[in-house]
Design a protein around this nucleic acid. Structure first.
Lengths: 338, 338
DNA sequence: TTGTACGCGTTATCAG
DNA sequence: CTGATAACGCGTACAA
């Protein structure tokens, strides 16, 4: 094993050319004779010379590093999302010879992100989980650091990448209506997430489009753990056909309560989730839900960010697709299938 | 907002001192007059000058970056572990002004790690999840890059940090025996993890120490999804008092099967898990288990790595503690409590 | 097509 | 105690 690392200068001397020529052979920039070029490339390959990324970075005031914020106050339910998203970012970054540097952020502490930016350790940042009050976005904007936000944000002028939750919820609701379901209850969390609004919109639009009265779509928000029982009680009394859960974390609780109440899904009541986080993967019955490809989301976010860094123009909002998974939990007993 | 970044030279010129002096005031290295030192520090504070980490890195051939490998082929059950571990690493790294750079590794693909190291993007690496066949460790060893391994490894000469699984399992088993439980079944996975061996050892030693015959501790390994049913059938016929699960991923399946078989925990049979991954957090009944602090593990791993990078001598093996959580799932019906 | 010389921002070395 | 000056390794105008 070679221990001592070789520099561009060593290559130049060994081949009796100048550093410039070697640099050109590697980068492809600037004209250079095909012959010398081949010769240099061959030598580099032979002696496995690898350019020093730090020096390169210093010279071009670039780091070829990307930052990604990861929330510390996650729940088990949204953990897979961040993990997959991170993987997607890493995927694409690697393909462009960028590396990814994680920084923990909580709702009111962005000190790690500040360090990262102030130390100029990254060329840009991917923000995951957008809150209505978005400290990181504000900070990066002030510092004029390129960044893209995964998840829609209310802030103006932010490059956003997200799945099309609104259309997805519209689609799922419409299909359920098509199966003969008429009365819904949508159970939301009390969080400050922007995405909740989009999902509600999709749901409401589907009802409207189908000509169903508003009263057929009960919406319960602010359902903390304590009053979920009361909410469900009201839901069950309301002759609801199908409970829609804003995401799996709610769905888990709902299923748990229904089981205790001795209710069968889908025989007594149907259930579906607006966000499949894979925690319910093995649930019996299988749960109808919306599937989003978080890894792809990460890839697109990363791609967009790198374009942004390179000064290319990027769409201010990219919406990715979704998949509607019709499963057991919404099957009608007559054997009607999707 | 200041837009243009200020350099050490600007500070030097503004204060009519040399760059060297400014550098000394910041680093604390080398003797310097208290007066000038204060003056420089004040100026820096005032004009919020931040040293360029890249240039600093180039000068000292250091990056102040750490790498951490994250496996791509994770399951939902061990996801929280990696996440918490990552957080611990980030915690400590930030406190030492290091940043953390993630790299995906699968069992047979370490190309991202290779890029990272070849490009000299990191000063050292934290390895998570040690397999019996450890490609990353071998690679880093050859490249002479400092690294520590989270989780015990069979390889010689590796700096390891882990929880003391063996003692923990010994402890839990012993306490269960103390509660009057005599016959155990330990259900393992068929994975190639080194940790499985440690846990089995702790379990077996506890039986031995208690003077129980070997036949009281049935061990089933290679329990793939398909034959788990058969295994459980045999277990139930064997008059076992308590099923011990190697980790929560197995425990989830076992609980599921027991429920279907109409068996009550702990009335009909007791259950405990050798690794609480928080997926069973809300399970009813609550599950007796071993708790490990993955975040602390990450912190210690990171601390050890930085010491290693700084040329300090570090213990070749650090074993961290654990917590035994006695819960409902092993309660005796008579109301005997732990 | 190729080479020279300088800049990137900092630390380290060696004088004073 | 302080200050020039040389690395660190690479990119890039500018010159040849």
């Amino acid at each position: 094993m070679e221990n001592k690392r070789i520099t561009i200068d060593d290559v130049a001397v060994a081949l009796s050319v100048s550093k410039t020529t070697v640099s050109r052979a590697i980068s492809g920039k600037g004209r250079i004779g095909a012959a010398t070029r081949e010769r240099i490339l061959a030598y580099i390959e032979e002696h496995d010379y690898v350019p020093n990324a730090i020096a390169k970075g210093l010279a071009q005031s670039r780091t070829y590093n990307l930052g990604i914020t990861v929330p510390v106050d996650f729940t088990l339910v949204d953990l897979p999302f961040f993990q997959k998203c991170l993987m997607g970012v890493c995927d694409y970054a690697a393909s462009e010879d960028y590396d990814v540097l994680v920084t923990l952020t909580s709702i009111d502490d962005i000190s790690q992100l500040e360090r990262l930016v102030n130390n100029r350790k990254v060329d840009g940042v991917v923000l995951t989980r957008t809150l209505t009050k978005d400290l990181p976005a504000q900070f990066l904007m002030d510092k004029k650091v390129p960044f893209v936000s995964v998840g829609l944000s209310k802030m103006q002028g932010i490059i956003q990448v997200d799945n099309d939750h609104e259309t997805a919820c519209f689609d799922l609701t419409t299909r359920l209506i098509g199966m003969g379901i008429k009365r819904f209850a949508l159970i939301c969390d009390s969080g400050a997430y922007v995405v909740t609004r989009s999902r509600c919109n999709g749901f409401e639009n589907a009802l409207k489009e189908a000509g169903l009265p508003e009263s057929n779509g009960l919406i319960f928000d602010d359902t903390t753990d304590e009053n979920l029982d009361r909410v469900l009680e009201r839901v069950l009394k309301s002759d609801v056909d199908c409970i829609l859960c804003m995401d799996d974390s709610i769905c888990v609780k709902v299923l748990d309560r229904l089981r205790k109440a001795g209710l069968e899904v889908p025989a007594d009541i149907k259930v579906a989730s607006f966000y499949n986080s894979s925690v319910l993967e093995r649930n019996i019955p299988s749960i109808t839900s919306l599937d989003f490809d978080a890894r792809e989301l990460g890839r697109v976010a990363c791609k967009t960010l790198i374009q942004l860094i390179n000064g290319e123009t990027v769409p201010s909002r990219s919406l990715l697709g979704y998949r509607v998974s019709m499963k057991e939990s919404t099957k009608t007993i007559l054997g009607k299938e999707e």
